[in-house]
Design a protein around this nucleic acid. Structure first.
Lengths: 227, 227
DNA sequence: GCTTGAATATGAACGTTATTCAATTTTGAT
DNA sequence: ATCAAAATTGAATAACGTTCATATTCAAGC
C-alpha cells in the first residue's frame, strides 16, 4: 500500500495556500479554488500548445482570472509550468500505485512504473508538448514521483532484486533518460518499438544483469485505471 | 561499420568547418568567416549568460555583424544555440580522442569519455549555463559526439566487454542522464562526490555487472590536452 | 448596519527582445 | 561602366512576461 502520500505542496518555494480545511474562510477558499482553476487551465493550454507557446493571458482568461492576478499565485510562468507538471505527475503516480500494490515482486513494481511513465509521455497528447522543456519535466518527475520510485527501488534492493546504494541518484538518472527517450520518440527520431529496449537499459542501471532486466521488461502488464 | 562522418583514428581532422579552400570565391570566404565569428561570439555570450539571457543583438555586435544579418546564417536563435553547442561538443570530442586512442581496453575508452564529459559540464564555467536547455544540450551531444561514442560502444561490444544491440539507443539515454546529472550538481542538488557513482550507473546500461562497472569507473584517468 | 484598512484582484502600460523588411551596399559578369 | 542578383543593415514591428497604480472585496470592530 502507499506508504507515501504525495504532499500537495512540496518544500521550498511554491504557491502559498493553506491546506484544505473545512472551516476555512471564504477568501482562503476562493483563493484555493482560483489556484486549482489556474493549474487546470495551465494543464489545458500548456498541454495544447506546449509550455513556451502558451501565454499567461490565455491561461488567465481560461481560469477566469485577471492577467496580473496570476502573479499573486505564481512568481513566474515557469513556476506555473512546474505546478502544472507536478499536478500531472501526482495523478499518474497514484494511478500507477493503484495497480502495482497488488504485485508481489518489488522489482516488477519499479519496472511497471518506468514503462508506464514512458508510455504516458509518448501516448498522451497533453504530455507530449511538455517534453520540450526537459529539465522542467524531469525536475517535476523527480520531485513528485520520487517518493514512490525510491521506495520501490529500496524495497527491491532489500529483497535482493536490485543492487543500489543511493536510490535518489538512480531515480534521477532514470528520470532524465525517460524524458530523453520520450522526446526522441515523439519527434520521430526513434520508433515506438524500441521502448522495451529503453526500459531494459534503465533497469540495467539498478545493478542487475541484462537478462534479468529483459525478463522484467517483458512481463505482462495490467492496464492502468482511468484518471 | 560506422557512418560516413564517423571519426577514424587518423588525427588532423578539424572541427565541423572545413579548412578554407582557396578555390572558394571571396564572398563565400567572407560568409564562412562571418559564420565562424557568429559561433565564436555565441560561445562567448551564451557561455557567460546562458542561452536564454544572451541576446541576438549582443552576439551580433560581438561578431561585428548587423543584427538582421544573423538571420541569413541561422533561422532562429535556437538554431544558433545548437550550432554553438555542436561546436563545443566537437572540440571536446577531439580532445577526448587524443587521449583515448592510446587505450587498449575499448570499454575504458567509453568510460573515460563519459567521465570527461560530465567533468567538463560541471567544471567549465562556459558549459554550466548552457545546461539549462537540457534538450538542446543533449541533442547537440547526441549528434556531435555520437559517432565517437557509438563507435566505442560497438568496439567494446565486439570485444565482448559490453552487451549492446543498439548503440545509438544506449548513447541517447546516457546522454540525457549525463545532462541530468550535471544539472543536478551545478544546481547544488547533488554533491560532486557522486559523479563516480553516476558513471558507474551509466556503464551499467551497457549490460555489464555492477562490479565490472565499478572497476571501469575507478581506473586512473590521464589528463585532457588543452583545447 | 456601517466604517475601515488591509488583502486581493485587475488590466492597461511597460520594457525587453526575437524577428522582419524596405532600403542600401556589395558582388561578379557583361 | 552597367546592371541584376545577393548580401547586409538597423530601424520598426510584434509579441509577451511582468509590473503597478487603481479598484474591489472582505471581515473585524464599533
Amino acid at each position: 500500500m502507499s506508504g507515501f502520500d504525495a504532499p500537495s505542496n512540496g518544500p521550498g518555494n511554491g504557491p502559498n495556500v493553506a491546506p484544505s480545511e473545512p472551516s476555512l474562510g471564504r477568501v482562503a477558499r476562493r483563493r484555493r479554488k482560483n489556484l486549482e482553476a489556474l493549474i487546470q487551465a495551465g494543464r489545458q493550454v500548456m498541454g495544447e500548445k506546449g509550455i513556451d507557446a502558451a501565454t499567461m493571458l490565455e491561461i488567465a482568461e481560461r481560469a477566469d482570472i485577471g492577467a496580473g492576478t496570476v502573479y499573486s499565485y505564481f512568481k513566474s510562468k515557469d513556476e506555473l509550468a512546474i505546478a502544472v507538471l507536478e499536478s500531472l505527475m501526482t495523478d499518474l503516480a497514484h494511478r500507477i500505485e493503484k495497480v502495482t500494490n497488488t504485485f508481489v515482486d518489488p522489482a516488477q513494481v519499479y519496472a511497471f512504473g518506468i514503462r508506464t511513465v514512458i508510455d504516458t509521455c509518448i501516448g498522451d497528447l497533453r504530455w507530449r508538448q511538455l517534453l520540450h522543456r526537459s529539465e522542467v519535466m524531469a525536475g517535476a518527475m523527480f520531485r513528485q514521483m520520487g517518493p514512490f520510485a525510491t521506495r520501490d527501488l529500496r524495497n527491491a534492493t532489500q529483497a535482493g532484486r536490485f543492487r543500489i546504494d543511493d536510490a535518489e541518484l538512480v531515480w534521477r538518472m532514470a528520470n532524465h533518460a525517460i524524458v530523453g527517450v520520450a522526446l526522441a520518440i515523439t519527434s520521430g527520431e526513434m520508433p515506438t518499438s524500441q521502448v522495451e529496449d529503453c526500459v531494459v537499459r534503465i533497469l540495467c542501471m539498478n545493478g542487475i544483469s541484462l537478462d534479468e532486466a529483459r525478463d522484467l521488461a517483458t512481463r505482462p502488464r495490467p492496464a492502468l485505471p482511468d484518471s
